[in-house]
Design a protein around this nucleic acid. Structure first.
Length: 682
DNA sequence: CCGCCTCGAGTTCT
DNA sequence: CTCGAGGCGG
């Protein structure tokens, strides 16, 4: 476990594990000539299973975990949607919702005077599905996929009780009826499932949405049948031979007559004020339901108006999903502890009574620094409010003062390092506190893991746990030791067979060729991260030129000021660091300038921000692609931003900011064109 | 000197 | 994601 893996890394690891397992299964079952022990095979399979459990969307029927023996199973076959299954735009605040209302009124002009009717529904937190009925018979159920092409799940979806196999019509059934809906697992069924899983010693699902997704993706439909899934349908797709409708509500009533499950909480509302009341009601009462919702959806009712409004490339203009703000929970703040980073920075964090919030169980949350603790006024023993910032990072909002017991003491920041016992120092005018002991084992460990991490020397197989082990075995003290490890002793350690040793050796060897900028990142010089390292490597071209440069020369570089220049100069002035650098030179590390690249500089002078997950790029991959073409890719949107690229489940703040500032928002296809041509779509 | 804009550093859970 | 702080233009 090195740094936090992105979803694409997980996908890549899953693929790698599947390939490896397939290879070994072939050696074992088909050739009867295994290359690894059964225990090693089991370990690989366990890792894959764990990843698939955590990421049900990556589950595949041809995964080795889904097979009995060596022979391959058929995959879910692709289904091209007759009409694309578009996603919806999101609103995260009442302001954004009313902005949507304003846009509607503007676009529809005079029609607004007569009032726009809205159909309002719950946003079910489940698994989107398309059902196709031909002449009344269910012929296909498909996942949303990328919106254009999904996967055929007919056999599995047909086992769901509320999915009609035949539509109930009086006369001749329509030639074609496609409906869209959400498969979900009722909360009671979710509890029962997890109880069964626990009793059988199987893994427990994290939440109803994951278990619904995992259940639909089963290889064996009879397993899906045991999962008590359910369905709500909410939208017509492609049709042939159906009646003509004027309003969306009419289509829903018609669907209900056909025997399709349409949620009874769907309402037709006339004004935006009523729409807002609907929002507030369900925000407050979301837990009264037998299924999870993550918001509410608003649709323009009149189909004529829908046609007039049309769609963007990404989503229809006539509908919007209002996402509820992150869910908050209260829990006990058991203690406040302090962790030591590679710079020696002492960061306080909250130790919480574990609480399930926003889809996962939270036991810790950062408190940033001493002042933040004071500002929030949280004390060990307090009941505190916890939520997920941006749906990912747990955050302590503040204490519930009504529940504070009398005389609860304020937190006193420790004066000594929890790792080495040395003094903690906070300088005048700074908000951070530091452990100033250069020998502190906590810092040493953090420095080494930083050196091997992806942004720096990227040494696979030398992650946090291995470094911890090597440190405690005395095999490592500083970063140069990595290049002169005593391999005979490594081989004697638990878990280091010939294969893992040779893999690690190869990874270390490969790291010697990393560009100078990566090595500079790895040093962990104060104020010098990835961007500054690349700037310095480009400006000086070699380690020696940078080492011998004066503060003035360094500060003359565009983007580098006196503070960074001094920090760099101080690093290279230290005898210990000079010694370290000489040992790295002897080991044969690359000390020469930036590696060139052949990409045409299509994005020179541009600044492109990426948010969400893209299909064809990892997070770093997208940023590398931008930088390789001469562009910049900062982490936030400003008026200097050329464009914002939006992938799956993007950050709301960035899109909102982009819209405010009128910065173009691109989908992945437009991004690929931008990389090639440097041109924005009009 | 102030107000952007960026960057760095640390962080959570699966 | 969030906070703090460096760099730089006005």
């Amino acid at each position: 476990m090195s740094s936090r893996p992105s979803s694409t890394d997980v996908a890549a690891r899953v693929e790698a594990l599947r390939a490896e397992l397939a290879h070994h299964a072939h050696r074992y079952y088909d050739l009867d000539d295994p290359e690894i022990s059964d225990a090693d095979y089991d370990a690989l399979e366990r890792e894959l299973r764990a990843l698939e459990d955590a990421h049900p969307e990556l589950m595949s029927v041809d995964s080795p975990t889904q097979k009995v023996g060596g022979s391959a199973q058929a995959q879910f076959s692709p289904v091209v949607h007759r009409l694309p299954m578009m996603s919806l735009d999101n609103a995260f605040s009442p302001e954004e919702l009313s902005a949507w209302g304003d846009r509607l009124v503007k676009r529809l002009g005079a029609d607004a005077d007569t009032g726009i009717g809205f159909v309002c529904e719950l946003k079910i937190d489940g698994f989107a599905i398309s059902l196709t009925y031909e002449h009344g018979d269910l012929v296909r159920a498909a996942t949303r996929g990328d919106g254009r092409v999904g996967e055929d799940m007919t056999a599995n979806v047909a086992t769901i009780g509320s999915v009609p196999h035949r539509l109930t019509t009086k006369g001749t059934p329509p030639a074609l009826v496609e409906v869209r809906g959400e498969v979900y697992m009722p909360l009671a069924a979710f509890e029962r499932l997890n109880e069964r899983q626990r009793a059988a010693g199987d893994k427990v699902f994290a939440n109803p949405r994951n278990s619904a997704a995992g259940s639909v993706r089963q290889k064996d439909p009879s397993i899906t049948a045991t999962r008590e899934l359910s369905l709500w349908t909410y939208q017509l797709g492609a049709t042939e031979g159906t009646p003509t409708f004027r309003r969306h509500l009419e289509t829903l009533e018609w669907m209900r007559e056909l025997g399709l499950p349409v949620n009874p909480e769907i309402r037709s509302l006339a004004t935006l004020a009523e729409v807002e009341a609907f929002c507030n009601h369900w925000h407050e009462h979301r837990h009264d339901l037998d299924f999870d919702i993550d918001g509410v959806v608003f649709n323009v009712d009149e189909l004529r108006l829908r046609d007039e409004l049309g769609s963007t490339s990404k989503a229809p203009r006539w509908a919007i999903a209002y996402k509820f703000p992150p869910e908050e929970r209260t829990t006990l703040l058991k203690d406040i502890m302090v962790s030591i980073g590679r710079t020696g920075k002492a960061t306080p964090f909250a130790v919480l009574e574990p609480v399930f919030v926003g889809g996962s169980t939270v036991g810790m949350a950062t408190l940033h620094n001493q002042d933040q603790i004071k500002v929030k006024d949280v004390r060990p023993g307090d009941t505190v409010i916890v939520r997920k910032a941006g749906d990912v990072i747990p955050e302590v909002v503040g204490p519930v003062l009504a529940q504070r017991s009398d005389g609860l003491a304020e937190f006193t920041f420790p004066t000594t390092c929890p790792v080495c016992g040395g003094p903690l120092v906070r300088l005048e005018g700074e908000s951070d506190t530091f452990c100033v002991n250069a020998e502190c084992p906590g810092q040493r460990w953090a420095r080494l893991t930083h050196f091997t991490s992806r942004g720096a020397m990227d040494i696979e197989g030398l992650g946090e746990r291995t470094i911890q082990l090597f440190l405690s075995e005395g095999l490592l003290h500083d970063i140069a030791d990595i290049y002169s490890l005593d391999w005979e002793r490594v081989r004697g350690l638990e878990g280091f067979g010939d294969l893992s040793v040779s893999n690690l050796q190869a990874a270390i060897e490969a790291s010697k060729q990393r560009p100078l900028a990566n090595l500079l990142v790895g040093f962990g010089i104060r104020h010098v991260g990835g961007t500054v390292s690349r700037v310095l490597a480009a400006a000086f071209g070699s380690m020696d030129a940078l080492m011998t440069a004066t503060v003035e020369e360094v500060a003359a570089v565009e983007g580098i000021g006196p503070v960074i220049a001094t920090s760099v100069q101080q690093f290279f002035a230290s005898d210990a660091n000079r010694d370290l650098i000489e040992r790295l030179r002897v080991a044969g590390l690359n000390f020469q300038g930036p590696e060139g690249n052949d990409e045409p500089q299509t994005l020179a002078g541009m600044s492109v921000v990426v948010t969400g997950t893209l299909e064809g790029f990892s997070r770093d991959g997208a940023e590398d692609a931008i930088k390789a073409r001469g562009g910049k890719s900062p982490g936030s949107v400003s008026k200097k931003t050329t464009a914002v690229v939006v992938g799956e489940s993007p950050g709301a703040a960035k899109i909102t900011k982009a819209e405010e500032l009128g910065v173009p928002v691109l989908d992945e296809a437009a991004f690929v064109r931008l990389l090639e041509t440097g041109e924005l779509p009009i």
